[in-house]
């Protein structure tokens, strides 16, 4: 009879973490940026149907990188969680912090008790009435939570791209400026000395949580509107402001 090999807990956790990290790093990055009228999300995603960025509740959005089936499952769970809470109490009582905690517990439990960790990284963001009320939570595969301020990059090359974004991001940017920075960061060269890519609007998935909207703040920016927003960047922000621009999506 053979004896099972002894694996130390440290080694076990390290192996799992490496496994999850590898899976996450394969995907394309998602950039989350705070701007004056809300929070913008951008990623390179040619699919119009399989989203990485979605609405959870009135003022809460979800962004993810990693394995699609796993984060899709978490997204649906989040929508159910938020809707159940809003139905049992009131729409006002649904908060990103509680949802981030529920996700953290789930990710943490799966990481320690199941045979395979979830290969996902999430952002749960809630837009406030004022920029100071914005909340951005970043959740890792092992259930750790970080309360981020201003901007987040997840996915492959997250650290390097996060550094690039940090150099250019500042509080109070307009939507056009924020998207310009986000798309530049997404198209940054993968190696030193590589070439900067300019990603076409059709290859981007972009959405915003717009604090000026009355109830449901989440809006996808697509098609001509997105092309306008991205094209308008070099000559400065277009007239009318970002909130007026997002209104046209309806």
């Amino acid at each position: 009879m053979s004896m099972p090999f002894y694996v130390s807990p440290e080694q076990l956790m390290k192996d799992r973490a490496d496994y999850a990290r590898k899976g996450i790093a394969r995907g394309r990055s998602v950039v989350v940026v705070q701007y004056d009228d809300g929070i913008a999300f951008a990623t390179e995603n040619p699919s119009r149907a399989l989203h990485k960025i979605s609405e959870i509740y009135d003022r809460i959005a979800f962004a993810a990188v990693g394995k699609y089936n796993e984060f899709e499952n978490l997204r649906v769970a989040g929508v159910r969680y938020a809707d159940l809470r809003g139905y049992s109490y009131d729409r006002e009582d649904v908060a990103a912090r509680a949802l981030a905690n529920a996700y953290a517990q789930t990710l943490g439990t799966v990481f320690t008790t199941e045979s395979k960790p979830l290969e996902v990284e999430l952002v749960v963001a809630e837009v406030g009435r004022e920029p100071a009320g914005d909340q951005i939570y970043r959740l890792q595969y092992d259930g750790s939570v970080a309360d981020e301020h201003g901007y987040v990059v997840m996915g492959g090359q997250a650290e390097r791209l996060g550094g690039l974004l940090g150099e250019r991001w500042r509080p109070g940017m307009t939507l056009t400026e924020a998207l310009d920075v986000a798309v530049d960061v997404l198209g940054a060269p993968t190696d030193e000395g590589g070439e900067q890519r300019r990603i076409d609007a059709a290859q981007l998935e972009v959405a915003v949580l717009d604090r000026t909207r009355p109830r449901r703040a989440f809006r996808r920016l697509t098609g001509a509107l997105l092309a306008d927003l991205l094209g308008g960047a070099p000559g400065g922000a277009p007239k009318g402001g970002p909130s007026g621009a997002t209104d046209r999506t309806t």
Binding site: V76, Y81, A102, Y103, G108
Partner: peptide, 12 residues
């Protein structure tokens, strides 16, 4: 009680 979201939430 287990901490994670119950299975009803993650059932596709």
């Amino acid at each position: 009680a287990s901490g994670r979201l119950p299975h009803a939430f993650t059932t596709p």
